[in-house]
């Protein structure tokens, strides 16, 4: 077994409204910054023991699909690094 850290990034699907990101963008613009667009995402870091990178990825994918992301709203990506 080895130790891995998985990073799961959960984003809204393209076309799904993100009112918090819009509010954040307006606040930045009020502060005088110029920006084209701002998107928000949630990121989770998960430490786990697994036989290899593939099995770590498989388990984290299941965690993501069962809880961390909602398929109606979100896309996600996962990266796994051995510690």
């Amino acid at each position: 077994m080895s130790e891995f850290t998985a990073t799961v990034t959960v984003r809204l699907k393209q076309g799904v409204l993100d009112p918090e990101a819009e509010t954040t963008q307006r606040a930045l613009e009020r502060l005088g910054f110029e920006l084209g667009d701002l998107r928000s995402a949630d990121q989770f870091e998960i430490d786990l023991d697994a036989a290899d990178e593939d099995s770590a990825t498989e388990r984290v994918t299941e965690m993501t699909e069962r809880l961390l992301a909602n398929p109606t709203l979100h896309d996600y990506d996962i990266t796994v690094e051995e510690q």
Partner: peptide
């Protein structure tokens, strides 16, 4: 039930 209820347009 289908779909999801998420953050109001007004935030």
């Amino acid at each position: 039930t289908p779909g999801a209820f998420t953050i109001n347009r007004s935030a």
